[in-house]
Design a protein around this nucleic acid. Structure first.
Lengths: 188, 188
DNA sequence: AGCTAAAAAGCAAATACTTATTTGGAAAAG
DNA sequence: CTTTTCCAAATAAGTATTTGCTTTTTAGCT
């Protein structure tokens, strides 16, 4: 059913995800992507117009999958924090890609994000928790969310060899942080 | 007094700092560095052997200046956190450089850091506070420090237009975090 | 000081290679 | 038959690094 063009588009995007996560936009090699995808270089240009277009597609995709990962309703900020933490731990490549994007496409980054309405889900989710009186309103949702993501990303992929116990300890640290932002429901 | 070679080394390093902070290792251009330094390309190779050697020199330098910025004794973790925060805010280029280094020289990054004994100062400073019973020992000094730096870096240079008030609000968030790690001195 | 020879610093142009992007045409699909 | 997909090879820059030579600095000596 899937037309060959759709399939090729996908294998190219998959290969690009790995390549760009590893080497970034400037360091990524179009030829390596084509080879890894088992496709021809020319197809990249046919589908994504140029290297940068492909990179942007990868970035949007990464942002979308973060949004996807935290889409469900969360009863509290702990739950939201855990979802973000899991995502970062389980897919370090995505995190790398976002970091590359912030560095290499600084000017276009937020515009790019808006296009894909990426973080929106998480922001509104957090805002909802604030509205419900469960999270402090001392900071706006975006600020808190970015702090949270920054904390989660701390280890991954920035550090050598993270054993399971390291991860658990790191998770505990993140949770300790978010709990300081939680508002205790008033005793009824 | 300063020999010309010393001076040239320095102007090259200064130019490289800017170039690499802006574009990273793969994206940085040797020729641009030479031009900005008002020096010849060949001098770069004479002094730093190659592009990567120059990049590493820049990274070590960035690490050293972070170490320098927090060298003084801190009476509590608030004071330490403020020092780190100030450094990150005042010199976003340094922060970018470190981020580039973690991405582009992932494997060599920590080895590089050890060479320059960069973070050591901050780690031992924090450990001292822990020994004095002023900071939780639930996490080791390295973990806490990396969390702290991650939080401080959150905005800078990752976001558009940070007004003074944004910065102050961000600082407050960082401080809120570190206070949860502080141990109240037992009432005497 | 002044002189001089060795060493170091400086540069423009050449080299050698990588790499993004295009072309022109063949094969497959609709 | 027309359109789309595919590809190998060509193109066209761009870029790190080296070479060969000139100029400046350094350091020893009278």
């Amino acid at each position: 059913m899937t037309s060959p063009s759709v399939r090729t588009r996908k294998v190219i995007l998959d290969a690009a995800r790995e390549e760009f996560a590893a080497h970034g936009l400037a360091g990524g090699r179009v030829e390596r992507i084509a080879k890894a995808a088992g496709a021809n270089v020319q197809r990249i240009y046919a589908y994504y117009s140029d290297k940068q277009g492909l990179f942007d597609a990868v970035v949007l995709d990464a942002a979308a999958s973060l949004a996807e990962a935290i889409r469900t309703e969360h009863r509290d900020i702990d739950s939201l924090a855990n979802a973000i933490f899991d995502f970062v731990v389980n897919d370090p490549a995505n995190t790398r890609t976002m970091t590359w994007a912030r560095l290499e496409r600084e000017d276009e980054f937020f515009q790019l994000m808006d296009t894909g309405q990426s973080g929106v889900g998480a922001v509104s989710e957090l805002a909802r928790l604030q509205d419900a009186g469960l999270v402090t309103t001392d900071w706006d949702a975006v600020t808190i969310l970015e702090a949270l993501i920054a904390l989660c990303e701390q280890w991954h992929p920035n550090t050598r060899e993270n054993g399971r116990s390291d991860i658990d300890r790191h998770r505990a640290l993140v949770l300790r942080f978010v709990r300081t932002l939680a508002v205790e429901p008033a005793a009824s």
